[in-house]
Simulated scan of single mutants.
Amino acid sequence: MNTAVTLRADATPSAPALTLRPWCGGDAAALVDAFRDPVLRHWAGPGPESMADATRWVRDQEEGWAAGDRFGFAVVEVLPDSPHGRPAGHVVLKDVARAGPSAQVGYWTAGHARGRGVAPRALDALTGWAFSAWEPDVLEHLELLHQVDNPASCRVAEKSRYALDGTLPPYPPAFPREGHRHIRRRDRRTRPESP
């Protein structure tokens, strides 16, 4: 899979456009800063606490792209005073073709960017790309998992047309509480392109 994939999400009346691009070494400081937020750490788990941690985390994202099984994107708000932008969040497509015609998506939003529709717009861009990049026999639907006590993730799923499919039992340590599974199925009118 090409690591030069860049996706876009349109601006809204109250929020700037988004660029989704693979993470790079220059994002390490912003990554450490994002994970200083206790809300993000609560829902996403422990993240990079030092520049060395962040560098390893970015390297893991790059390795996922190279292996073709995990595609992490830095979500950057397009601002006139910042040509490369500061990451406002993260979206990821993982486990493509590992367990049948499905894959999983995940995301987080940095504290400084919450409330501007970053997560649903980024997730929608990632979903469209996934369904256009893989054939239906490889990718028929996407799953989004979150803890039941995270209503913000339910709202993001609903805004992104991921229907609630059921409740999952706890699966520590990643999911210490019951979880929700949301599913978005491929629109049959979508014509896939080769990845």
Rank of each mutant, 00 (worst) to 15 (best):
P170F: 13
H180N: 15
L145D: 08
R161S: 15
A163W: 04
P151G: 05
P173E: 10
L145S: 08
K159D: 00
N150T: 04
G179P: 02
I183L: 14
F131K: 03
E143Q: 11
A174Q: 14
A133G: 12
E135K: 08
P169Q: 14
E143N: 06
P172T: 11
H141T: 06
P136Y: 05
P173C: 10
Q147H: 10
E140H: 07
P169L: 15
R155F: 03
S153E: 01
G179D: 09
V148T: 11
V156W: 00
P170N: 06
D149N: 13
L142G: 00
P169T: 14
P170S: 08
R177F: 12
K159S: 06
P136G: 07
L144M: 08
K159M: 04
P172H: 12
A130M: 04
A130R: 01
A133W: 03
V138I: 15
E140W: 05
I183Y: 03
F175L: 15
L145R: 14
E143D: 02
D165M: 02
L144H: 04
P172W: 11
E140D: 09
E135H: 14
L164M: 08
V148P: 01
S132D: 05
T167R: 15
H141I: 02
V156F: 00
G179E: 06
H141L: 11
F131Q: 04
E178I: 06
L145M: 06
D165G: 13
K159T: 01
L139Y: 01
D165L: 06
H180L: 14
G179K: 01
E178V: 08
P136M: 08
H146N: 09
Y162I: 02
F175G: 07
Y171A: 15
Q147V: 03
A174K: 13
A152D: 05
H141K: 13
R181K: 14
R155G: 09
H146I: 02
L144F: 03
H182Y: 15
H141N: 10
D165H: 15
